[in-house]
Every structure is written in structure tokens, then in C-alpha cells.
Design a protein around this nucleic acid. Structure first.
Lengths: 192, 192, 192, 192
DNA sequence: TATGAATGAGCCTTCATTCAT
DNA sequence: TATGAATGAAGGCTCATTCAT
């Protein structure tokens, strides 16, 4: 009599193990045996549950993406913008593994249609979320530009922090710069 | 008697082939045989000239880095800032392969000390160049912050463009956004 | 559920295959594929059970050594001496492969610390066993010398037989010469 | 105008280099590049002069053999026996490289017809030389046996010394044991 | 004659996948 | 369902040999 939910538990454990292992030894070094051992299971289980290593990788990316999807609560537009910034950097803060893992996945996504699609979704969602809020505060053109720039700023700081094995302080600074930019855009007299 | 300069020619051909192949099939798919075949040489040549695949990879990164090192001519500070932006995006425009290859290298650099060091140098150089020029136009604190933000902006747009297989137009837009940000910083009344 | 003892069986089969293959084509010609095929297994199995080809080679040497370690039964000193001689030549007679394989290993042991150590143990054990028995029959100095000479005699005949692809008859002759030497030493009036 | 004897000089230098390199790194580690570099020449020269690496190895063995062929001067039989012993151990003493190299060659000779033949010649010559001298001092049967045993003794001590990275003292002791054995055979009342 | 750059076959090793249990 | 032993294709690297100079 299999325990209910046993399967989804195992799947999640394997995804967690994948993220950890990729963070530690890179995508190249993350072998099936290593991941399975980390999850405390046998190597065969991965084929069993995911069909292939590739599918496990993709499931892991999907999971990381879902972590960023947490619904922005229906605050006012300004608070939402701040929350978007917070959320994008807090994922990093919570688990350092995520950062390194993300970077590894990005490097691979250029040559993997499935990963590529997932990254695209992520990229578009960020700018789309920003644009939605900016548009409630600025004229359309300015809002559009502000969203583009803010998204680049978030990703740029994120990338530079990730590549630096940055400490908490740097992340806080980065967050500050992003918010400061948003403030500066909003404070300027809107040109119609 | 070997032709003078033959060696450096071959080395460069192999580096070019590496960048192309990594762009096409990723770091993982870039086998020695593939790279050698692309360069029109035999697989053994890589050991002969670089000692190992790893060394070829590193040489390729070093080459990409050197492409960004082109001396900024001694213009006035403002023109230098514009040139920095141009240079950082033109490298991408010239050869689409570079973009994808960079991304692959970044993904790996978290787990490769040599690559990591090279990326660090690159990252620091950008912000340092920006800071140098900003300091001639703004008070120290503002200059420092402007440099940090501009660097993140360049990298962020760069990353988003790279991940998008972006076309020329997007690169131009990105360049425009970066320059616009710099202008906005310089136009604001400097707070001492 | 794997069969109990399966692993040790496989390991022994691989060791046997190694000894055979080295005997046939030499240490240099003994590739992993050849050994695995001889054992009726896949090439990957060697890494699986031994970690590396080198480790398999060493395990094979250790096995050959262990074949010489069969306890000399607690007979009287003279019978023990005779048994030592018999044992050292019977190993050869039983399996012709052992002889050639030994020689291959010896050739390599000069440049392989692990093999060297194993050979040292083997060499010392022979002379030590001989000395122990001789000392019960002769004065210390004579016993010591007799052990040294007998050991050299055994190894010398062994080597010459091995290099000759010698037949059974030659081995018997060699055994006879060794025993005759021992007898001659023991028959001489012991000088105290 | 090529210098007379240039070729034979080069050949000898390559043979010397081969013996040195094999002694240092073993037969397996002795690559053509290493040998050529040691001789101060280019790697291509080996094919040029010897046709192949294999041929160079064989030439080196032939050279080592020739070093043992130095004519025994026409002394009396007893002095000749002593000289045979001296010669067989002095080769070792002169150059430690020879010992290790010999051993490497022996290990390979089981699987190389040419090397095998050379070793056979060597082996037969030793026992034949010994028999020739013993026969002038003992009855045929005793002389035959004494020659066999002495040859085994020489090779046995030689092997054990070689495997031990033995020092000069051990070689002297071995020489002493061999001579002592010869004396003991000759002193015994000859049984017709 | 002599060089050493270039070749490419062959080696050991790794590792995703399979499958009998 | 879950295991992990076994497979074998593919990778990087070594190195004897070749050949244009």
C-alpha cells in the first residue's frame, strides 16, 4: 500500500537535491549518481520518476521559476514595484544555491529548447509585471521604458552578484539601487 | 622550417572555432573533435598547442576579454562613457557567437577557478572604467553609485539580449537605454 | 536483490582474465576492453569494481602473491625447506600464464610504487621463510648465507625457466638443483 | 659533406638515451619525444635512423648484450669463472640504469619475438661459457650441473638486486656468494 | 640530412540508461 | 515500487609515425 503523496514527495526531494548539487559542482559535474545519493535514493529512481536526467533538470528549472511566481499581493502600484524587487533578490538570499544553479541553467538554455522556453517565460514575466505597475503611475511610453530598464537593472545586479559569490550586504545594496532608480523615475515630472 | 607566425595563426583559428562551436552546441557539446574539425585540423592539435581542452577554453575566454580591452581613446569624460557603452554592445553585435559563448562560459565560471578569475577581472574593469569617467563629472559618492548602476544596466541588457537571441534592433534599444540613464544622472543637479 | 558473493566472483573472474591476457599479450597489450571481453563482461565493469585499470593490475599481483602464501605445514625443518622449493615452482607449473604475468609485473614494478612494494614483500618472505628453517639446522651465519643463496637459486631458475617458455621437465630439473643445493649445505659439517 | 661516423655517433647517443630514459621512467613511459630530447635531437631522427621505436628498443637491447660479450681473456679455467661472475655484476655496477633497463626489457621480451631471441642468446651464452670452463676442471656431468646452477645463481642474485634498488654492498655480497659456490663445487672431490 | 608540426588511431575513463530482481 | 549492477557509447588525451620544409 503506497503512501499517498509519496511520489510527489520523492520528486521534490530529487529536485531539491538537483538544485543543491548543481550549485555545488555545476551542471557538468552534477551526475545522476550524485543527485540520487544526495536525495538518499538510488540512481534508478530518476529514470523512474522523471524519465531522464534532462527531464529532471527541466523540472528543477520549472520549480525555481515557480518560486518567483508567488502572487504579488494587490497593494498599490508603488508597493508592488518594491515587492517585485524584493522578491527577485530574496530568492537569492534565501538559498545561495539557487543563484549558482540559475546561472548554470542559463548557460545551458541557449542550447536546450525546453530550458530556453522556460527562461523566456521568466524574462517576459518580470518586465510584464513591472510594466503593469509602472503604467498605473506613468504615461505609457515612460512606463514601458522604465519597465525595460528596471528589468535589466534587476537582472544585471543579480548577475553581477551571482558571479561574485556576493555576500548579503551586496544584495542589499543592489536592492537599494534598483529601488532608488524606480523612485527617481517616478519622481521626475512625467512628460506626456 | 616552419613559417613564422604559423603557430599564432593556428592558435587563433582554434580559438575562433571554439567560440563558434560553443555558440552552436554549448560548452557541453563542444567536443575536441568538433572544434578541431571546425578549424580544419586534427584533434591532436589541441593538445599540441594548448595542452588540454580546458586550456583552450580558457584561452578563448581570454581572447573574448581582450576584445573588450580596446583602449578608450582619451576623449573627454562624457564621450568616454558613451564609448564604453558602445564597445560593450558592439562586441555582441559583431559576432552573435560571442554572446552565446559568453553565457556558456559564465555558467561554468562558478565552478572553474580560472574562468572565475577571468570573469572577475572583466566585471571589475567595466565598473572601474565607468567610475573613472563619472568621477570627472560628478561628486565621488554619486559617481560611485552611477558606475555601479550603469554596469548593472549594461550587463542586464546584455544578458537579456543574449538570452533572447536578440536582433540588432534590440541591441540598439538597449544601448539607447544605457546612454539615456547616463545622461539622466549627469543632468541632475549634483548634490555635493 | 543481488546474489550474495556475486561481487567477489566477478572480481575474481576479472583478475583471472587479467592474468591470462597479460600472459598472452603483455602488460602493454592488456587493454581494458581485452580483459573485460575475456571475462565476458563490459569494459565499464572494471571501473565499477576496481576503480581503475591500475587497481585491477595491483589486485591481480596481490592475488598471485597470495597464491604463494599457502601455509607451510608445521613439518620438521628439512621437510619445510623442500616444501618451500616445491611451492615456488608448482605455482608456475599449474598455470603457465602466471609465469609470464609475473615477469611483466616485475618489469613494471621498478616504476610503480605499489607494485614495487608488493614485489618487495614477496622477495623478503621467501628469504625469511628459508632462513627460519635453515636456522634450526645450521649455525646462524651459515643459515643466513644458505637462505640468501637458496632464494637467489629459486628466483634464478624461475626466471630462466620463465624466459625460456620452459617445459615441465626443465621445471623438475630446476627443482632438483635447488633441493640438491640445500642438501649439500646441510650435509657439510657445520662450522660453529 | 657529412662527417664520417656521424651516423654511428648519433645512433649510439640515441641508444644511450634510450637506456637512461627506460631506466628512469620504464618502458611504458619512455616515449620517443623523451628519448630524442634526452639525446638532444629531434623526434623525427629516430624513424630516420632506426625506422621505428621498436627497432630502437631492440638496438638498445643488442647494445646491452654486446657489453657482456667482452672477450674473456685466455686465462686458466678458474680465473675465467671468476671473471664471468665479475663481468655479469660489473655491468650492473657501472651503470645503475642498465639494471632497471634490463628488467624492463625482460618483461617485454615474452611478447616480442625479436627481444625474446636476444634474451635467449644471452641466457645460453652465460651457461655455455660457464660450462666450457667447468668442463676443464670437473667431470662432464658435474660440470654441466655446476654451470646450470651457477647461471641460475648469477641471474637470481642479479634479479633480486635489481628489484631491490640494491646498493653496491649488496652487489659485492652477491658476487661473493657466487664465487663461494663455485669454489665449493670445485673443492668437492669430483665424483666420476 | 634533420626537423618538429601535424595526424589520428587507440587508450582509459565517465556516466546516462537499462533491467533483472 | 525501488534498487543498483551492468552496459557501452562517447569523451579527452597520448604518442608513434609521417612529411613538408
Amino acid at each position: 500500500m503506497p503512501k499517498v503523496g509519496m511520489e510527489s514527495m520523492r520528486r521534490q526531494q530529487l529536485i531539491d537535491a538537483t538544485i543543491d548539487v548543481v550549485a555545488e559542482v555545476g551542471l557538468k559535474g552534477a551526475t545522476i549518481n550524485l543527485i540520487a545519493k544526495r536525495a538518499g535514493m538510488s540512481s534508478g529512481i530518476i529514470s523512474h520518476y522523471f524519465g531522464s536526467k534532462q527531464a529532471l533538470i527541466e523540472a528543477s528549472v520549472r520549480y525555481l521559476l515557480s518560486q518567483l511566481k508567488i502572487e504579488y499581493s494587490p497593494d498599490n502600484p508603488y508597493d508592488r514595484l518594491m515587492k517585485i524587487v524584493d522578491l527577485n533578490f530574496s530568492g537569492i538570499q534565501k538559498a545561495d544555491s539557487s543563484t549558482k544553479t540559475w546561472l548554470s541553467f542559463w548557460g545551458q538554455s541557449m542550447h536546450d529548447p525546453n530550458l530556453y522556453r522556460l527562461q523566456e517565460i521568466n524574462k517576459r514575466r518580470l518586465v510584464s509585471n513591472l510594466r503593469y505597475s509602472f503604467k498605473q503611475l506613468l504615461d505609457p511610453k515612460t512606463a514601458h521604458d522604465a519597465a525595460e530598464v528596471t528589468a535589466a537593472l534587476i537582472d544585471g545586479f543579480w548577475l553581477r552578484c551571482a558571479l561574485s559569490r556576493a555576500n548579503q550586504e551586496k544584495f542589499s545594496l543592489a536592492k537599494g539601487y534598483c529601488k532608488k532608480y524606480i523612485n527617481s523615475v517616478l519622481e521626475q515630472p512625467t512628460v506626456i
